[in-house]
Design a protein around this nucleic acid. Structure first.
Lengths: 336, 336
DNA sequence: TTGTACGCGTTATCAA
DNA sequence: TTGATAACGCGTACAA
């Protein structure tokens, strides 16, 4: 690891000159020295020490990406294709912008805050925040924040949210199901907060709009933790036979349910219709292929990152972005 | 962002004392001052500036995780469940050890090297290295490196490799297929280097051991890039009908192939048998559920990270770790 | 037990 | 056009 100081000594010039050449401030340096320095830099393959640079400039060129994991959810959050596709989009944008990505997964908001302040990250991308988590972080961390899929009106004073019209997406799908003759339609998710609640609301709106009365046991609560999943699926399958269709809050759950159903001889869509949400690889590869509400997950990551980078540059950005959804009708909803 | 200096001034003591308390060098500080400092630290919520710390100590507490992406492969590497599960294991281990993870995806080895040297990362986890990529990196980057799934005998002089007995895993599976009466067995992958070559070798060994003569057109080359995939699958499906079975180099390809097959009315396993490799969620959720060679992907990430951390601490580590594989016989291979 | 002073590698200010 | 030098925040020898 050669340093500017060493280069300067070797070349019999000052560190300032070397630094100026490195930063292309060539207006202040003679062509001859530029050449000398540039050649030498290439020869010794100079790489700047970012820690020193950050210290001097009080910036880090790091974008912190913090995922909050719920205790009852995946032991391994990244295994959800939705999450990994999102991270993929984020990583790519960060890299293309010349920034660096520091990925951090935690159940503990305090831990996340400590992490971002030590590293003095230039901006923060938050995913999985529930309730006022986002607000708590933004109160302590004063630099730009962009949240993904957070439902907090209050929070929008502090950060931009990039989300979806989840309500509408679900509304349209359930509406479609009803148009195909289904009436007893259950809703499956693992909770009723944030995004899940918005989708649940869209589901209920569609029922109401069609004069179908929702009953409490139409809500199917799945337990995603791997040690409870099988049993949970068991119970759900038993209840499922009373329904025409099930609207699932994600493709992952839809496919897990269909697999469980198939294992006990229940045929989709002949015996029951299923819809998902997200349009991930899981539903695309399943047969019958899953009818679902499409969202561009990678794009979501890209948009969120772009907005964050703009805010870092001091540009004006919207408080809220709602990406569109689109119905993808494939083969898991039959007409009855 | 309060600094040690400011704290010292506020408390009328020296920075050394404050620093000593922070680092628990309490043998040298009176109990009274410890209390004062600790209370104050809590009150102002002191967070160290890592850049300054790194600069002073010449370490970073960062583990660089570099994934080399092949141009012809996924635009979005992380979408492969194998990769995301691996990252999940790595992230968890890094975090638990009190380190930080910097994720970097690139097609360009030079770019990766520049990245790790600027950040002065304490150790490097490499995945997706082909040929002597790993060696090239290790020649320039002098700190500990652990590679995952790299086949390079030469490289083992420079770094530890954490891999699998890919050859054996494939050998056993193909052997099993043959024991079920299959003889014309194709092998599907997107290339024949590294891991894929090892699996291919195992496949051919099994054929030989059973006196089955391999012919060139038994190798099915899939083109994974999304704009070529459909057509590639098309061609492969046409050729597939001449075979009893296909050994796929990954679960992802196996499931993609089965889906394509199913779409043109070819039934698995009635018309053709399929085996995968990896045992990811894709094969587990597919119906018929995929017979495959199991490997513990998350564990692979954990083991690799643990070894790297040991090397950073200066402990002795093996040059090579081969994690076990295990045959998982489910429903995609029939007896004929 | 506490304090002073310096070095880490870089950038920036100001003087030559 | 170039060079000295201070500053960034922290850790640590060494001195007091």
């Amino acid at each position: 690891m050669i340093t500017i100081k060493e280069i300067a000594k070797e070349l019999n010039m000052s560190t300032t000159t070397v630094s100026n050449v490195i930063h292309g401030k060539t207006g202040e340096v003679s062509d001859a020295t530029i050449k000398i320095v540039e050649d030498y830099l290439k020869k010794v393959d100079y790489v700047p020490n970012i820690n020193a640079r950050n210290l001097a400039q009080n910036e880090s060129k790091i974008i912190g990406v913090a995922l909050k994991a719920r205790a009852d959810k995946y032991e391994n959050l990244l295994m959800d294709p939705f999450v990994s596709e999102l991270i993929g989009g984020i990583e790519e944008s960060i890299r293309n912008a010349g920034y660096f990505m520091m990925l951090y997964i935690s159940r503990d908001t305090d831990e996340i805050m400590r992490h971002v302040s030590t590293w003095n990250v230039d901006g923060l991308l938050l995913f999985g925040m529930i309730g006022d988590d986002g607000i708590r972080v933004s109160e302590r961390y004063k630099k730009p924040i962009v949240c993904i899929d957070t439902y907090s009106i209050e929070g929008l004073k502090h950060f931009t949210n990039v989300g979806l019209d989840d309500d509408k997406g679900c509304f349209e799908m359930v509406n479609y199901m009803i148009s195909q003759g289904h009436r007893r339609i259950a809703f499956l998710s693992d909770n009723l907060n944030g995004v899940d609640f918005a989708r649940y609301s869209g589901y209920k709106r569609a029922l109401e709009a069609n004069n179908i009365e929702f009953e409490d046991n139409w809500f199917f609560k799945i337990k995603p933790r791997s040690d409870e999943l099988a049993e949970s699926l068991n119970e759900l399958c038993d209840r499922a036979t009373n329904f025409d269709a099930i609207m699932c809050v994600s493709d992952l759950y839809a496919v897990q349910l269909m697999t469980a159903l198939s294992d006990r001889g229940v045929r989709v869509p002949d015996d029951i219709s299923i819809a998902g949400f997200d349009d991930t690889i899981l539903g695309q590869l399943h047969r019958p292929s899953l009818s679902t509400v499409h969202q561009d997950v990678k794009e979501k990551g890209v948009v969120a990152t772009d907005i964050l980078l703009k805010r870092i540059k001091g540009e004006n950005v919207p408080k809220q972005v709602q990406l569109p959804t689109r119905l993808i009708i494939r083969d898991t909803i039959k007409q009855i």
